[in-house]
Design a binder for these strands. Structure first.
Lengths: 341, 341
DNA sequence: GCGTTGTCTGACAACGATGTCAATCGTTAT
DNA sequence: ATAACGATTGACATCGTTGTCAGACAACGC
């Protein structure tokens, strides 16, 4: 900036004014400065600006795995939303490890991100995130952190789960199974509970069969095989997220099971699988957008009590309805076939 | 830091030494300082550190769309690799627009990223990226920027395309089609050229049928329908990336075409589609890792001439081989059926 | 001509950390 | 006891930018 000032024969301050589009600079002076900036290829040093202004114009995001499409859609929408306010997004993967998450929180706070969005790896707020929440806006997405003074954006797990169970029941599935991801993941627990409640309130027979991870290699297959044998075989399963859905699809295809699968989280091509997979769609892009908007609202001075926002889910029915109906109609025969196997 | 120094009754400089694990601090002094740091919850201000040291410990990544699994895998692997050297990754989507890409290059340079990885939106280097390449290491991934003084990491487009065409020819497919993405995308062009060359060198009959995007809505369907009718219908198509593969799968299923699809870019569940999709697998994670390693090598003082690294691809055969053989055996019958339609 | 107003510009300090270099301390050798 | 040495520690300037405040300058009314 000093170089520009020298060449333009003005003070550093004037250059600063031009760079920041501040008013009170004579147009011809501004034009001259701008010309020099162009020729020298000058860029303001954001680090220094950050230091002086005390603002970093960036937001942090901590998720489990940026390679997972669900998270990458979240990150993509947040990046878009952040950029609409000239902010950058620093996204990092904590790999589901609470201690790594804590490290990353500290690292992002050290970078003076203006806000922090977290998809918590555990249900207990770390010391690091408690400290963070005291000095900058923190938003939990997808999973809450009870006891943390922070905004939260969730999707409607109870409603989503219920819609899936009701859908299956309406198509005469009586014996349902639920396969959740790692029990440490809040959504897995929550959807598990909602599944059992829906099962009971619909008066489905017997007790619901459920499992929670983490699963050893081949364990999903074993569980499904067991559920599908015996006197009251399961005819449909609900999964708690895209990772489990994938494992179930693999198992179903490998074992050749006749099983309707309803997945949590939509995924590309679900429509073209055999059988097509009905899913509970939750919109990660919408979650991300709202989270960033929440951060900006706080930065703009909103200091109301922490809010929890619950976004609706949508059941996307794909083929399984038809197939379910078929099974329902010929149920006794089907059951006979199952018990025989 | 001043607060810590006051409480610990040492100078700011000593605190700095402790924070940076510099040697020459008496263990008991260091312990005392560390204790105060803990109680005060002090974090070094990275912006200030950045300013003084002239380094930002961050790397920039510009891609087309972070929501696309291919790019998100690239970003995820880069983030992992960058973090192994204590660096953060600033990833942004340029949405395929060269002018936005140029803006983002400037914004990242202003943030003083130490290196910049770009998946170029066009084949012509912008002024912005030329300037950037003069002051920091730039690496092009997936697509080169001819004339730019920068390292490049590509995957073997010629080899990958050839392996796909040879695979199809070996299974008696004689009439092949190629559907490329937007002609502005370098890989689409390159794979197109390689497709035509392979087609010729294998002595396949007639002229290869090819198309390049961008495609209007429904255009892919129209093209496929045309290729599959007439006297020498196409029996297999190769696509140039995951986006086109998706469009082709939708068209094939919607129109009920009997067409073998080989896709560029692997994707989850490709195995379980009907028909299963054979793909040319290129490893975005490996590309990202090498790109970041290249950046660090340059930062470590490597000033050799720009290098181009070409990573191998792998043909993942899934079912289409069997199906192709079947078509090959009953070719005349098949052709009759096709011409009849 | 002179004070007054308002516009434009510049000098300077400060943001928080670190490199440089000098000062201080505790040891050891004499 | 004292000089000499290495191990610790601290004072200060500095990185590039922006907020504060005062100075310079032109235009205006009297």
């Amino acid at each position: 900036m000093a170089d520009v000032a020298r060449q333009a024969e003005v003070s550093i301050k004037t250059v600063s004014r031009v760079v920041n589009d501040e008013e009170g600079v004579r147009p011809q002076t501004a034009a001259k400065v701008r010309a020099i900036i162009e020729t020298l290829g000058f860029h303001r040093h954001e680090g220094a600006s950050m230091l002086r202004k005390g603002r970093s114009t960036s937001i942090g995001l901590i998720v489990e795995d940026l390679g997972n499409p669900w998270y990458s859609q979240l990150a993509a929408s947040m990046e878009r939303e952040a950029r609409s306010r000239q902010h950058f997004l620093l996204s990092v993967s904590a790999e589901g490890l609470p201690e790594r998450e804590a490290e990353l929180v500290d690292a992002l706070v050290a970078r003076r991100v203006e806000g922090l969005v977290v998809v918590p790896a555990s249900s207990i707020p770390s010391e690091a995130i408690r400290r963070a929440a005291l000095q900058l806006p923190v938003v939990c997405v997808d999973r809450p952190l009870p006891g943390l003074h922070a905004d939260t954006v969730l999707s409607d797990n109870d409603g989503g789960t219920r819609s899936a169970v009701e859908h299956l029941a309406a198509h005469r599935h009586q014996h349902l199974g639920f396969l959740g991801d790692d029990a440490a993941i809040w959504t897995a627990q929550r959807r598990h509970t909602a599944f059992v409640q829906s099962y009971d309130s619909l008066g489905l027979p017997g007790r619901p069969r459920t499992a929670l991870g983490p699963y050893a290699a081949g364990e999903v297959s074993d569980i499904l095989q067991e559920w599908c044998s015996g006197t009251a075989p399961v005819t449909a399963v609900l999964t708690s997220n895209n990772r489990v859905t994938l494992a179930v699809i693999v198992a179903v295809r490998t074992l050749g099971l006749d099983l309707v699968v309803v997945g949590y989280d939509d995924f590309e091509l679900a429509e073209f699988l055999d059988p097509p997979i009905t899913v509970v769609h939750q919109d990660p892009a919408a979650l991300g957008e709202r989270a960033v908007q929440q951060i900006f609202a706080r930065l703009d001075g909103d200091d109301a009590e922490p809010r929890t926002l619950v976004l609706p889910t949508r059941l996307i029915v794909r083929g399984s309805a038809r197939r379910a109906a078929r099974i329902g109609e010929g149920r006794s025969g089907d059951r006979a076939r199952h018990t025989a196997s």
